[in-house]
Simulated assay, not measured.
Amino acid sequence: MRVLVADDDPGSLLVARAAVERSGHDCMTAADGGEAWALFQAHRPDVVVTDRMMPVMDGLELCRAIRAEEPELYTYIVLLTSQGSRDDVLSGLEAGADDYVTKPLDPFVLHTRLLVALRITTLHADLAHYRRVLSEQARTDPLTGLHNRLKLSEDLEQLHARSARHGEEYSVALCDVDNFKSYNDLYGHQAGDLALRAVASTLAATARRTDGVYRFGGEEFLLVLPRQGVIGARALVERALCAVRDLAIPHAGDPSGQLGFSAGVSGFSAGHVVSAEMLLNEADAALYAAKAAGRNQVMLAP
């Protein structure tokens, strides 16, 4: 673990540092609360061992500042105090400390506190990992591996706000696999799933690194293209359509004889300032127009 020890008494600081290093942990030290706070922000230690009474920022203020940060990983705080009254202990715990040790410091006692700190910080690290995994799973389509509607709503809201604030354009493209119901009827749902994965992979490979590709639902996919006008967006989607055709997935239920898709594109710009919801509606209308015009093509919203 990385342990930060803060104490304005040089003797106590040396004893604490020696005890931490004998316990097998990395140690950094601070001679006052202000220095300790700067080191905490720079290095995010796993454990902070802090004296209660220090200049610049005392131990209670340091505890409150650390807890106010609410970092992803938990910092275990041990308060050193020569005042062992119940009120002092309670005020320390209320400020955010996890445990306390009375001075003069007993290295064995600090060693036992560090054992507890290791268990607690390891548990919190595991929980943080599982939260990240669950958060990613909640935003990922299990069939295609693309982002889903939840992630789309988050990303599109941020992009729209940023584009409106900075006067930047962006486009969205709604793509729908043509005659997909008949594909499932002819080849079965397992083949349909494989076809959707192939289309998803092709869209993701064609998109730029900064673009977002989402499964919108069923056989529909949505591309979100930051800093891209509708002309450039249409060209990108047409390249994706050509790439899907190049897969040469047979489809007897489509006039072309192979799997393809139709798409509608709309864009946010200085001359077309509308809500993100309106852009999606416009892309959907353009997609409908592409379907009505014979499918297997890309149409721009008016």
Score class of each variant (00 low, 15 high):
A195Y: 03
L222Q: 01
K181I: 10
F221A: 12
T206G: 09
R208Y: 06
L174I: 03
G217E: 06
R208W: 06
K181T: 15
S201E: 15
R208E: 07
G212H: 10
G217K: 07
K181F: 08
G212Q: 10
Y187H: 13
L174D: 14
Y187N: 09
V177M: 02
Y170L: 13
G212A: 11
A195T: 13
D176F: 00
A195C: 15
S171C: 11
R209P: 03
A173V: 08
A198H: 11
R208P: 06
G192L: 06
G212F: 06
A207H: 05
A207F: 02
G217I: 05
G217F: 02
L174R: 02
T210F: 12
L223G: 03
T206L: 08
L174S: 14
E220K: 02
G218L: 05
L222I: 02
L186V: 05
D185H: 10
A195M: 08
S182Y: 04
D193K: 00
V172P: 05
L196F: 12
S201P: 02
E220C: 06
H189V: 01
F180K: 04
T206E: 14
V177P: 05
A204I: 04
D176C: 07
E220G: 01
S171N: 12
F180R: 00
E220S: 06
D193N: 15
E219T: 03
H189T: 07
L174E: 00
A173D: 00
A195W: 03
A207N: 04
L194V: 08
G217Q: 06
F221Q: 13
L223R: 00
R209D: 13
F221W: 04
R215V: 01
A205N: 11
D193A: 13
N179M: 14
A195S: 07
A200D: 12
V199L: 07
S171E: 12
F216P: 01
A173I: 00
V199F: 03
A191T: 15
R208L: 10
G217M: 04
A191S: 15
Y170F: 15
L186E: 08
S201Y: 04
Q190T: 07
A195F: 02
Y187F: 12
S201M: 10
V172Q: 05
H189I: 00
A198D: 14
R209G: 09
T210E: 15
Y170A: 13
D176P: 01
T210D: 15
H189C: 07
N184G: 01
S171Q: 11
D178I: 05
D211P: 06
A191D: 14
T202W: 07
N179G: 04
G192F: 03
T210G: 13
L196Y: 11
L194I: 06
V213R: 04
G192Y: 03
V213K: 11
